[in-house]
Simulated assay, not measured.
Amino acid sequence: MAGAILLLIGAVLQMTRWEFSPYIYTVGAVMFGYVQVVGNRYDGASFIIKRLRRQQIFGAIALVFAGVLMFTMQRNEWVVCLTIAAVLELYTAFRIPQELEKEK
C-alpha cells in the first residue's frame, strides 16, 4: 500500500517539476512492483491466469521504466509508459479474481 501511495504522489508531483518527485515515484514503483512479482504467486494450471500474471508483471516493470524515463527524458514521455502500465494493472486487477472464481 505504501508503494502505491508513493507512486501516486511521485506522479502528481512530477507534473509540478519538483526535483525529488522522480525519486519518490521510482521508490514507490519498485515497492509496488516487488509486491506484484513476489507477493501474488499462482501455482495452478490455468493458462489464462498465468497469462494474466505475466501481463501484471509486465505492467509492474513498465511502472519502474516510467520512473527511469522521468530521470532521462526532458518532456513527458514517461506519461505514455505510465498509461500503458496503468491499463495493464487495472485490467489484470479485475480479470484475475474473475478467473480464480471460475477455477474454484
Rank of each mutant, 00 (worst) to 15 (best):
R41D: 12
V87G: 08
L6M: 09
A66C: 02
G39Y: 14
T26H: 00
A11E: 04
I84F: 12
A45V: 11
Y34V: 10
M31I: 03
L13K: 08
L7S: 02
M15R: 14
L100W: 05
V68P: 05
L13Y: 00
L63D: 02
L52F: 04
F20E: 13
A62T: 10
E77Y: 15
A60M: 06
E103L: 14
R41Q: 14
I24W: 01
L100S: 03
L90T: 12
G44Q: 11
G39M: 11
Y23M: 09
P22Q: 08
T83E: 03
E19M: 10
Y42V: 01
S21Y: 01
L52Q: 01
R17W: 13
N40I: 08
I49T: 09
G3S: 05
R75P: 04
R75I: 10
Y25P: 04
V30W: 13
F32R: 00
Y25D: 03
Y91T: 05
R51I: 04
L90S: 15
A85H: 06
L8K: 08
V35F: 05
F58K: 04
V38K: 03
L88Q: 05
L63F: 15
W18H: 08
D43C: 09
Y34D: 06
A45C: 08
F20K: 08
F65E: 03
G33Y: 06
F58S: 05
R53V: 01
F20S: 15
I24F: 04
L100K: 09
L6Q: 02
R51Q: 13
T72W: 03
R51N: 13
A66S: 14
G10W: 03
R51K: 13
V12S: 09
V35T: 09
A4R: 05
T26Y: 00
N76R: 14
G59W: 04
L88E: 07
A29F: 03
E101V: 07
E77P: 00
G10S: 10
W18C: 04
E89F: 07
T72K: 08
V30Q: 03
G39E: 08
A66H: 04
R41G: 15
A4W: 11
R54F: 09
V64A: 11
V12Q: 13
M70C: 06
L82Q: 03
M31S: 05
W18I: 10
Y23E: 13
T92Q: 02
G59S: 05
I9H: 04
N76E: 13
G3H: 09
I96K: 00
L6F: 15
I61A: 11
V30S: 09
G67Q: 06
I84K: 00
D43T: 11
V68A: 15
W18V: 12
L8H: 11
F20G: 13
A29I: 07
A29R: 00
L13A: 12
F47L: 14
A85M: 07
T72A: 12
I48F: 09
F58T: 11
M15T: 14
